[in-house]
Design a protein around this nucleic acid. Sequence first.
DNA 1: GTCCAGGATACTG
DNA 2: CAGTATCATGGA
Length: 298
Amino acid sequence: MTPETYLLSTPAIFDFSRCLRYLGRSPLELLHRVEDNRLYKLLRLDGQLVLLAIESGEGNTLRLSFLNHTPTPAAISEATLYLEQWFDLKRDLSGFYTLAESDALLAKTLPTCSGLRLIGVNDLFEALCWAITGQQINLTFAYTLKGRLVQNFGEKLQHAGHDYWLFPTPQRIAALTPDGLRIHQFSGKKSEYLINIARLIAEGSLSQHGLLALGDFRGAEATLVSIHGIGAWTANYVLMRCLRDPAAFPIADVGLHNAIKYQLQMDRKPTIPEIQQMAANWGNWKAYATFYLWNTLY
DNA sequence: GTCCAGGATACTG
DNA sequence: CAGTATCATGGA
């Protein structure tokens, strides 16, 4: 049977293959799969587990295929919205390119990043878990830990010989004790942080909508930082990848430091004041600047 | 064996 | 208020 297929129009500055290169950076990733220029993603849409395949379509489009269901109209609409957010398709990047072409550091990212969109982590709980899990450990181990979280507490769909996963719900993690995460090699502190945040989200006192309703992103940042386990780096990571604050800037990020060191051929990592100076003109493109610099590391 | 990882917090002076 | 210790383990 031929799956239901839909087209989604893409903006002028968009290179799907570069987005896929970012998405395919870790073989340990369980929340999506990249194969043969096609992206597979499991979502819960309109109450059902829906497996999507996304690939380049004719002209400036993406082609979505629903692999395991004939989608309801609501599911089609939700899938479209999800992808627009995931790939940041509604943002006009012309200002960023004007900036990047005249910026000594950012210009170096364009040959390998041009057309890349800031790939999001749409779900707030997932974004927070990923950021906290990744604190002060190498990225490979962070993926291993996330994989354990997903495989032990997430939901699985098998399709055509592959496993597809949904990230655990906050309700599921909120029901754990710290030992339930520590046995999977999360630190004691991170276990407490994750369970507490799961509880806040499960009970409704923390939500993406609520954070965005605070008026500006600085309000969201202050709220996030007030939560145990969320410092400036984590808050800005989540602002950048989930809340879509264009000025989010995880300036203490080691990956950012390494990318700058490499691009400028420095014999040491840059200091925070040096980075502030480099970013002085980045304005509301700091999130994109960070993402492009990260992407030069893969 | 050593050093560093997409940091945050609690403690110390 | 600015430094320091601690976490926790893997990867290089």
